[in-house]
Write a protein that binds this DNA or RNA. Sequence first.
DNA 1: TATGAATGAGACTTCATTCAT
DNA 2: AATGAATGAAGTCTCATTCAT
Lengths: 212, 212, 212, 212
Amino acid sequence: MTRGRPERKQRANGVESRRRILDAAVEIAGERGYEGTSIAAVSAKCGLPASSIYWHFKDKDDLIAAVIERSFETWLAAVRLPGEDEGTPLERVTLMAANVARSLVEAPDFLRLGLMLALEHRPVQPSGRTVFLHAREIAHQRVADVVRTFFPTLDETAVRTVTTYAVAGSDGLFVQREIGGESVDLVALLELHARTVYGLAEGMSGGGEGGA
Amino acid sequence: MTRGRPERKQRANGVESRRRILDAAVEIAGERGYEGTSIAAVSAKCGLPASSIYWHFKDKDDLIAAVIERSFETWLAAVRLPGEDEGTPLERVTLMAANVARSLVEAPDFLRLGLMLALEHRPVQPSGRTVFLHAREIAHQRVADVVRTFFPTLDETAVRTVTTYAVAGSDGLFVQREIGGESVDLVALLELHARTVYGLAEGMSGGGEGGA
Amino acid sequence: MTRGRPERKQRANGVESRRRILDAAVEIAGERGYEGTSIAAVSAKCGLPASSIYWHFKDKDDLIAAVIERSFETWLAAVRLPGEDEGTPLERVTLMAANVARSLVEAPDFLRLGLMLALEHRPVQPSGRTVFLHAREIAHQRVADVVRTFFPTLDETAVRTVTTYAVAGSDGLFVQREIGGESVDLVALLELHARTVYGLAEGMSGGGEGGA
Amino acid sequence: MTRGRPERKQRANGVESRRRILDAAVEIAGERGYEGTSIAAVSAKCGLPASSIYWHFKDKDDLIAAVIERSFETWLAAVRLPGEDEGTPLERVTLMAANVARSLVEAPDFLRLGLMLALEHRPVQPSGRTVFLHAREIAHQRVADVVRTFFPTLDETAVRTVTTYAVAGSDGLFVQREIGGESVDLVALLELHARTVYGLAEGMSGGGEGGA
DNA sequence: TATGAATGAGACTTCATTCAT
DNA sequence: AATGAATGAAGTCTCATTCAT
């Protein structure tokens, strides 16, 4: 019973506690989804009692929403967009795709949890879902900007179609990777996807037969 | 107890009860996922007491697995593959995509619930997940067969890549539709996807530089 | 550890269990009020686990409402109204008052809990309060009938005033008894009240100066 | 820390904070009773953190006791007893009753909360109950004094009976008003009560057959 | 004179499941 | 082929209170 360290972390530190709670929650929620994330489990993993979690977050819904928000920011920071002027357009797009792929492999919790929430259709939606959809909208806009940059002649309908297709493919390949594990080379697949989308946009840009 | 007119439906009918339970469960599980599906909720929706559900299914895990299985069959039945010899290859592939799209709009529960299960990573996975992955494997094989039929010169690695890419894109577009609702034209997007994949396979088939 | 009686009352008996729960709840709620009545305490007192209470009652609110309802019936049964034709009118009224007093001493839970609920003004009222007010309305009507019987010339406004005054005095004297305990002779006080109200009604009946 | 303009109210003011806490507490306790009054709710209503409440009051019990005490004083201040020598004795008594009625309509919290506490019978009684009973004893004495003044020939037993009856009737009519809301004319009813009690005392004073 | 943060206990309620009938 | 009743475990959340600052 000789307690090496006194361990009576009496020093109240809200910021640090909040971080610990989010760290624990992002891990559990990323694995088990909304319902599967119990406050007791988060409490056990972060070392703070359940009642302390309620000091920092109004309720479970609020906690999950904060998890989504923070993990989106983490993920955004992990996507390092390359400098503006390296290589051909196609090479640059491919590089972006590889960066996205790496960020999704490194910090997959955001998208995994987000997709779980997005697929649910509860009568009363968790607010984390709203936060996710909002984050997703931001990502969508960024992709759209890239599309517009590389294919300035595309009309807005075509931009939207290409962007939607690009994002959806990315989602699908991420799911594939989540199911297949490390045997799925997400970097290679997203690079392939980038080239494909590039070709698609090129086709819509040159010949007027856009669509969908 | 022999009542005058027999068979007035009150007298138990196992098959019918089982169907009612599955009908209720597929709806709830498709909305709320595995953890979100409580036996009590299924009981309330189907009108049978909870204990009756346990007469038909070993436990909740078994019920969800059965839900996945049956909704896969429902979905399979909804995919009406077109006759073999109408139109050009590209037209035929596009037609298939449209059919898949329609089936996913009509019977989305299978894929929605399945993806939710697939994205989870719990210590002990629900057997419904296994059932889903198995069904998915079947679908994957069917797509692979189509790819081989249309592009007999593709090597197996390329077939796998194209198939994976085709399925992943389909998943991603399905997610898009689940998020965006009716404003997303899944038929058009999957037709576009079909043409894109067709072009991709063609490219890998003709020039030898396949990949991933 | 030698368990004398097997005590595994496996024999499911809903009616009996429900009664045991209500018996426990009426006692606790009569002493401690709505908020003071915890499901855990009821569970401990009746021997059934908390979850079993929820088989018989939707929630705590439902339980308390049932408690009020049953204890009202118990109390009503305890008020033995005297035969129609014994003694003078004043004697008969006094006898009624004594009977009411005895019933309130014997089964005070109904009125004690009811008054506690009635005095509360929560944003969302417990449904037990509604049940109590309804029961009280019934009691009010009975008293009004007695008033009308003995003073047929009273107009309805006067009947209402006399009845209200009679019931209010009864409530107040009951409170007095609850505070003062056995040192308060409720029977004597209610008999006095009966005579007083009788005189009041007589006065309003003869001279036309009713009021309030 | 010496700010330019001092005393801009931000700088703590114990008396004012204490008042705000009591203001919030009297409202909540008057609505919900002892158990229904949570420190968190008081904190939310008064805008001070829960820990500040514990700076001003030892514990919840202490807070409620202070609430009772202050609201009793508020109520006492609201009872404006009339000058000694206006009108006939009956008129003066009636005027007193009207004043009491008005004070109970204006400041009902004291009596409402007090009666809730008085009706409870917990193993360990809140000290607010004691405070209430003490305040009530004071009120009782005042009424007894009035009775003695107007009916000097009454013996002490009769004085006690009349006083008890007077107070009980007042309580009962107050409850009636709390239940019935503004549709109950408390002033009229208490005036009626005053006349009735006056008559009762007169009867006991003249003929020697007092009672109870 | 306050207060941000923490905390163990306990609140109500639902959970999946069982069992005798 | 079913079901009424029961139940221990676990769920989310609130409680009154403390303590270092």
